[in-house]
Design a protein around this nucleic acid. Structure first.
Lengths: 151, 151
DNA sequence: TTGACATAGTTGCGCTTGCAACTAATAACA
DNA sequence: TGTTATTAGTTGCAAGCGCAACTATGTCAA
């Protein structure tokens, strides 16, 4: 009967703390300068990286829920950072693309993100940082696949 | 002019994804069985691990904001999982302690958490899992200390 | 004492989220 | 063709969260 559970060694807890700690600072970049949400920043970053695509594509690529994407897209459009173009082949869907202004924001924030990421990795050391990448990707891919009852 | 920012290699993003992926499944344990919030689960876990303490102590230990702690404590009390005892030395503060029922819940969830944690670590391999712990703790401690302008 | 400041904890408000239900368009197939 | 099932995207609602303001108590020092 192990009664010695310790939150401080619980992997999901540690991951959450680390994610919050590292995200918090960078959040200031897009929140203060552009009044953007994390979801908005991610949608922008995906469009900036991959070019025009539909909301559904963004969902698939980024694993963000469609509700969040929908609202983020509406907000980004309202701010003039992206445009929607109907797809004549499928009138349910719309192609999303960054405006010139949206691209400018993407380049500005992307630049800051790269610098921040480098600083973080620098503090960890190169090989550790690289291993961390692999481990995190592994957890992202398989982190929810163990316990078979739920869902 | 590096325009090649890629979200997929951005450490805060990876950490968030990994945290979400691993937390989601375990969340089912406390949400489905006890209708608890993540914050409630964390407060319960801290009280279970460290015994009676004040809300302020929980804030200090866990880095959860006092507002969240306050509301989680109220909810846990309403569910009969903890009791508040006024501190005669300082009538602003209250000692919080798990009830018998609260302890039972803590042991149940703690057990499940240990199992889940072991499964996660097993999938990573022992040495990698251990390194991950150290890296995450490092990021938690220093993850926000680089960029000096914000705040 | 009394007044200025600090601290424990709560509350109000606006915002983001998650979930389920919804609309509109398309696909599948008898 | 008509009927049903999928899919793209939106919306309503009930939370939870973050922040600032607030209450009540305690501290310090003139």
């Amino acid at each position: 009967m192990p009664q010695d559970f310790d939150l401080e060694t619980f992997l999901p807890y540690l991951l959450n703390q680390a994610a919050e700690a590292t995200s918090k600072r960078f959040q200031a970049s897009y929140k203060a300068a552009y009044g953007m949400t994390r979801t908005q920043w991610r949608v922008l970053a995906n469009l900036g990286k991959f070019g025009a695509m539909t909301a559904r594509d963004i969902c698939t690529i980024s694993h963000i829920e469609k509700t969040k994407v929908s609202r983020a897209v509406a907000a980004l459009q309202a701010d003039g950072l992206l445009t929607r173009t109907p797809n004549p082949q499928d009138r349910r869907a719309e192609f999303l693309a960054l405006t010139l202004q949206g691209s400018a924001v993407f380049h500005d924030l992307g630049q800051k993100a790269i610098e921040y990421d480098l600083a973080l990795r620098h503090s960890l050391g190169p090989d550790l940082a690289q291993k961390l990448d692999a481990v995190l990707r592994d957890l992202i891919a398989h982190g929810g696949d163990f316990i078979e009852d739920a869902d």
